[in-house]
Simulated assay, not measured.
Amino acid sequence: MSISPEKEKDVAQRMARLGISEDDLRETFIRSSGPGGQNVNKTATCVYLVHLPTGLSVKCQQDRSQTVNRLLARRLLLDRIERLKTGRIAAEKARIEKIRRQKRRRSQRAQEKVLELKHRQSERKKLREKVGTEDA
């Protein structure tokens, strides 16, 4: 079973975009398990792919064909690396945005609202005072 050149090109473009080269990957082939009959028992169709810089690994045995499993393993690995990189970037952006919000001045309307709430609270507290006893 062969893979279309468009799919191979798509994976190559994603690898280039993420800055991953084939030298960063270690690929080994293992015998698959499960359905597939004699083909699975005789040939090593399971693909085990490791991205050496990050240590992420993927094992793929979805298809009886080794070439299809190679493509699928690369896709899975690229998804994981992408998630890892965008997760870090998103977390850093969120942290910076939180600090920016904390440092930002309140608007005039917001300040007035806060003061109004404080005044109401102080009025409530005044009502809690003990009632004075009159000496007659």
Rank of each mutant, 00 (worst) to 15 (best):
residue 33 S to Q: 12
residue 72 L to R: 00
residue 58 V to E: 02
residue 32 S to K: 05
residue 66 Q to S: 07
residue 114 V to F: 01
residue 77 L to E: 00
residue 126 K to T: 06
residue 111 Q to E: 01
residue 58 V to T: 03
residue 87 G to S: 01
residue 17 R to Q: 12
residue 128 R to E: 05
residue 103 K to I: 13
residue 37 G to H: 13
residue 89 I to C: 09
residue 99 I to V: 11
residue 60 C to E: 06
residue 24 D to L: 02
residue 16 A to D: 04
residue 39 N to C: 07
residue 104 R to Y: 02
residue 24 D to H: 04
residue 33 S to G: 04
residue 24 D to T: 01
residue 2 S to I: 06
residue 102 Q to F: 06
residue 83 R to V: 10
residue 124 R to C: 07
residue 30 I to Y: 15
residue 77 L to N: 00
residue 7 K to P: 00
residue 56 L to P: 09
residue 74 R to A: 03
residue 25 L to I: 14
residue 54 T to R: 03
residue 99 I to K: 13
residue 60 C to W: 02
residue 41 N to T: 11
residue 33 S to E: 04
residue 49 L to T: 07
residue 65 S to H: 10
residue 72 L to E: 00
residue 36 G to P: 09
residue 9 K to V: 12
residue 93 K to F: 15
residue 40 V to P: 06
residue 21 S to Q: 04
residue 8 E to W: 06
residue 119 H to C: 06
residue 31 R to S: 08
residue 32 S to G: 10
residue 129 E to W: 09
residue 28 T to A: 11
residue 64 R to N: 11
residue 89 I to N: 09
residue 85 K to N: 12
residue 83 R to T: 07
residue 106 R to E: 08
residue 113 K to N: 05
residue 52 L to C: 09
residue 75 R to H: 03
residue 133 T to M: 10
residue 73 A to N: 00
residue 87 G to P: 02
residue 43 T to A: 06
residue 53 P to G: 15
residue 116 E to M: 00
residue 58 V to Q: 05
residue 110 A to Q: 05
residue 131 V to E: 13
residue 11 V to T: 03
residue 86 T to C: 13
residue 119 H to D: 07
residue 75 R to Y: 05
residue 36 G to I: 09
residue 21 S to R: 01
residue 101 R to W: 15
residue 59 K to Y: 00
residue 96 I to P: 13
